[in-house]
Write a protein that binds this DNA or RNA. Structure first.
Lengths: 143, 143
DNA sequence: CCAAACTAGATGGTAATACGAACTAAAGTA
DNA sequence: TACTTTAGTTCGTATTACCATCTAGTTTGG
């Protein structure tokens, strides 16, 4: 890219940094996904399911998609054996989505691959800076 | 979301923060795009063209897409009068893509709307922290 | 200096998303 | 029990991106 642009306020600089960083991160995620014939959204679903067992509607809210879209999304992952639909005991209408064993292993693998790809980026910062960045980002997305 | 997860190293925390932040930023960008009947990619093209006049191939490399995809992408933006194809004088094969006047105004507008949406996020940090975050992010994506 | 090889971009066919509207089944409510 | 609401699915449609192919302009080698 082109580095800092003249005449930028601090505010603009954060803004630009966030956008640049986000596109870079998304590109790396897409790369991992593509390497395993997954869409970015499918990758995201696997990541989300690592520590949750959401209903379809919750998953939709999480992803910012319509329920109908998620339904199809889950279909494809079920077909690949990565994910399972569990009927809910309390409410016969709801479905809980969970990772299968394969899905879990796959999700770990993908996480690892992503970590390897981001590593060189993160490594540009020293330990202390990493810690500070982590804390700042956490505050940004908190709640 | 769920805040910090136990047993995370600093390293993992940055990683997680980057992903969370990226998805949030992308969601805001998508929101701006959707409000104006643009795809995220189209929005991105407008942003890129604000300070560049790339050939199709360069644009493709930038976006991480195939040239054929970019060709269609530009078609749609041309139809909307936002963008123009300029033949190159030196090489009769190449096309330079540039913003029209409308496109420029539109791009400014979109940038402004995005800034408004991100503002509350950034405002969670104090001035000094914003500055530090900006600097750290810049180092991450430098070059 | 002209034919062959290469390059930039466009086109056409295909597959994956995502949406909205309509539908089914299960709860909740009056 | 009938009416309404809710969860999820299904279906038809539009958009997006890919790959393979094609066209036109450029470069190179004989």
């Amino acid at each position: 890219m082109q580095g800092k642009i003249q005449g930028m306020t601090d505010h603009d600089e954060v803004l630009d940094g966030l956008v640049q960083t986000s596109f870079t991160v998304m590109a790396l995620l897409s790369q991992v996904a593509a390497a395993h014939d997954l869409s970015l959204t499918q990758l995201r679903v696997l990541a989300i399911l690592r520590d949750r067992e959401p209903k379809i509607a919750e998953l939709a809210a999480f992803l910012g998609l319509e329920r109908s879209s998620v339904s199809g999304l889950i279909d494809r992952s079920v077909t690949r054996g990565l994910v399972r639909r569990l009927p809910s005991a309390e409410d016969g209408r709801v479905v809980r989505v969970t990772l299968t064993g394969d899905g879990q292993r796959f999700a770990e693998e993908l996480t690892g691959e992503f970590a390897v790809l981001v590593e060189p980026m993160i490594a540009r910062l020293g330990r202390a800076e990493q810690k500070r960045l982590g804390a700042l980002l956490d505050r940004l997305v908190e709640r």
